Simulated assay, not measured.
Amino acid sequence: MDCGGRIDKARRRGRGAVSNAAGRFDLARNAEPEEAGEPRPPLRTELRLEEARSIIAWNRSPDLPFDRSINPYRGCEHGCSYCFARPTHAYLGLSPGLDFETRLIARPNAAQLLRRELSARSYRVAPIALGTNTDPYQPVERDRRITRRCLKVLAEFNHPVAIVTKGTLIERDLDILAPMAARGLVRVGISVTTLDARLSRRMEPRAPTPGRRLRAIRRLADAGVPVRLMVAPVVPALTDHELEAIMTAGRDAGAVAASWIMLRLPREVATLWREWLAEHEPGRAARVMARLREMHGGRDYDPRWGHRMRGRGHYAAMIAARFAAAERRLGLNGALPDLRCDLFRAPPKPGDQLSLF
């Protein structure tokens, strides 16, 4: 690692970020020079366990269609180079770069906390989002099964949930999801950024291939789980030409609705993304960044509500128009049915007196 936090290619093979520079709360990291010529082992994924004190996170963002979410993990091994959640690792004193995808934190008591919080007398039911910050079906879930335990609690309470993922491990939990879907309690969003497997491998190195995600859509749809295809993010001058093809492939796989989000570069992500472009797409880098700045008033990113998800200007309007036309043509413009909240019940605790009626 040099003074800018860059890591040798051999050490970061199969990772998304190019560097591991300090986050905004850990400026001392930049003072860790790597000895010239000294061989270093490849970066390995580390997992730390955290006993969380609460699990439901609340938000008041007018850009989001939910006010509460749960995230069983911090950091994400999928390593998507563009991930808007990378800056959250800075709050842990870790780098939003390679630390975000190699130094993960799991919350093994998430299901217990969820049960406790849903059982509170003051709790008022509304759909809960699962996986809005980091992917609940990233590779570590295979062994940890924290997401699965949370789903079991939600099913027991008849609590509505909306899941967002790239992970095909979601198929494992169809035994829980299919009955919930039959009761109107679940819907799933599957993100497909590109249909180009080689580009996907460079841009989101440990996520399932695009074709594999489409097969997951098919399996979910066949099990009766409503799926929204998420073209997210749309990357100007890199994946934008695929918009209609991605939507067609998602519809053919069984998706019943679609959405899109423009590439977002909050805080440290802007630098990380420019580094990725310089290494992987140097010939397109200037054009990609010019389009983004055009949509954000000359800046890499504008975080204002009502602006950050789509941008403004001629290019953003063109993408929106293309999406709307394809959505109508493919029959993806129907609204998904509202998730049911009327079935919610806190199950009786051991020792509770049961009702006679």
Rank of each mutant, 00 (worst) to 15 (best):
A207L: 11
M318I: 00
P96N: 07
A253L: 04
A10M: 05
P337I: 04
N59P: 00
L332I: 07
V192W: 02
R293S: 06
A255E: 06
A182H: 00
L336P: 07
D173R: 11
A106F: 11
R310V: 10
A178C: 06
H314R: 14
L220H: 01
Y137A: 09
R264K: 12
G224T: 00
P62F: 01
F323Y: 14
Y73C: 11
E141Y: 08
R40N: 09
N20A: 08
R215W: 00
D222Q: 15
G351W: 11
S200I: 08
C76H: 00
L195D: 05
R172D: 14
G283L: 10
E268G: 03
L154N: 01
V225G: 04
A126C: 07
G167D: 02
R29V: 08
S81Y: 01
S200D: 12
I70T: 10
G37A: 00
N30G: 13
R328E: 10
A316S: 14
S122R: 15
G331Q: 01
L214V: 05
V269F: 05
D173Y: 13
R11V: 15
I217A: 04
G334Q: 11
T102N: 13
R228I: 12
A85P: 03
S81D: 00
P210M: 08
E46A: 11
R328G: 05
V288W: 09
F66G: 12
R310P: 00
G23V: 00
M262I: 04
Y301W: 11
E279F: 09
H159P: 12
L195R: 13
Y137M: 04
P337K: 03
A321N: 12
H159K: 10
D252I: 04
Y315C: 05
V186Q: 08
G224K: 01
A85C: 09
A10L: 13
T271G: 15
L332K: 11
M295Q: 13
R60P: 01
C76S: 02
R215T: 00
M289W: 06
T194S: 10
T132Q: 10
L199S: 13
G131K: 02
G37N: 01
P210R: 13
E268L: 02
D99M: 06
C341R: 13
L113Q: 03
A106L: 06
L27S: 15
I56V: 15
L113N: 03
L104E: 10
M180I: 03
F323G: 02
N71T: 09
P96V: 10
V288H: 10
R345S: 10
A270N: 05
G334I: 04
S61E: 04
L229E: 03
L330G: 07
I217V: 15
R24Y: 12
D302E: 10
S19V: 05
G23T: 01
R218H: 11
R145P: 02
H280W: 09
